[in-house]
Each structure stands twice: as C-alpha cells, then as structure tokens.
Amino acid sequence: MTARVGVITFPGSLDDRDAMRAVRIAGAEPVPLWHDDADLKGVDAVVLPGGFSYGDYLRCGAIAQFAPVMTELVPAAASGRLPVLGICNGFQILCESHLLPGALTRNRSLHFINRDQALRIEAVDTAWTNRYTTGQEAVLVLKSGEGNYVADTETLDELERTGRVVARYVGTAPNGSQRDIAGITNAHGNVVGLMPHPEHAVAELTGPSVDGLGFFTSILAHLTEGSPVRAASTG
C-alpha cells in the first residue's frame, strides 16, 4: 500500500499541481481535493499548497480557513491524527486556522521576493522532515510577499525550547522573519508550516536543487513505515 496524500485546491491556489507532482515523484499517490467539498476522501495526509487563496483578500489565508474542506481537516490535524504540510500560502492558512502559532506579515523590503534560498533543517522529528538530518542544509525556492514570520516573545521562546522550529534561513532572513524562522511545527509534529517551497526543489531540470524531495519522502516514510514523530507531551 502506498500513501495517499491530498492536495487542496482553493480558488487562487497556484502551486497545487507542483505539490501533486512532488508527491508523485516521492512515490506516494496524490489526491486532488476541492475547497468546496467537505470531504477529505480518506487521504492519509494533506498538503495546503502555495498561491493566493481567495485572492488573499482580507489577509493572506484568512478566508481559506472557513472553506468547507477545512471543517474535517482542522480537528483531525489539531488532534495529531492527520499530517498536514502548509507551504507558503498554506503556512499562512495554518496560522490563520490556529493550527500553528504566530503570523506571516509583509516582507520587510515590502517587495515580493523570489530567490533560491538555503535553509537549515532543525527539527527532524516531524511527519514531514524525518528523512533529513539535524542541521542539514537544503536549498529551496522562496517566493512570497508576506513571508515575514512574527510571534510574541513568549511564543518564540516556547517554539525554541520545545524544538518546534523546523527550519531557519541560513544567514539573515530575506523577509525579516523573527529569529530567521522559515518553518515551524505543532506539538504533535504532524502539522508543519514552511514558507519556502520544497515542491519546487524536486528535479534538477526545473529547480535549484532536489533538496525539497525530503519533505515528501518523509511523509511517505511516516505513513508506510511509521517513522517516529515527536511525542505530543513535549508541547
């Protein structure tokens, strides 16, 4: 049996096909999910792809949290049962849904930034990063206008203390993110939000590296081999 990984298309999702391609390259089965159907089709994990869901009107990710498809997703993810990876706009949706703490705000430069970006993977005990080694560098694609991660000091300290910073920008964060944070996880390690795009770094021909594939082979390993994930009590 292979793992079935759902990819949700919201109106304005853009990297949904890319996420499905990455899932396929990793050896799992991608399952398209539609924002307006309150049905996760029994998938084993979900990717919230990048883009501008609902035009990013109001606030990035703010409207998507109310989509019918999220009604089943949010409790399943919060309880630790359903692995969810939010990439870029997906990370924003996870924060707006309160599955992850903090918020993504306008880049410090006020400009959209697209660049090949080195990250340091710091937490490898999540459903989405178990194939990396602690401290491993990965070059992914950063492409966002609102990728500046902010949270209050208490939350940031808590994330650090409990080892929930999944990835940091190598060098200074290009978007001004606090403590150079590029990605975080929840207490269970099943929900990961990441601002740079691993799905665009899965093939030499079209990406800056193949370093992003690990996110998709990790979920496959987690689902089929039961790769260990952090205990919820650490949160």
Partner: peptide, 28 residues
Amino acid sequence: VTQQYDRYVLGNTVLAAPHDGGMIRVTD
C-alpha cells in the same frame, strides 16, 4: 526587478532570467 517575479510556478521553467532566453517544458 526579476526577484519580484515568480519564475518557478507550474514547475516547467527550465531557463529564466538572467539567461539569454527563457525556456519552458511544454507539459510534464
């Protein structure tokens, strides 16, 4: 200028700025 544009979306970009020309794969 060019870093304000997304060059990766759709996953078929083979060459983009600053190379001499842009190139895309027609489909997957």
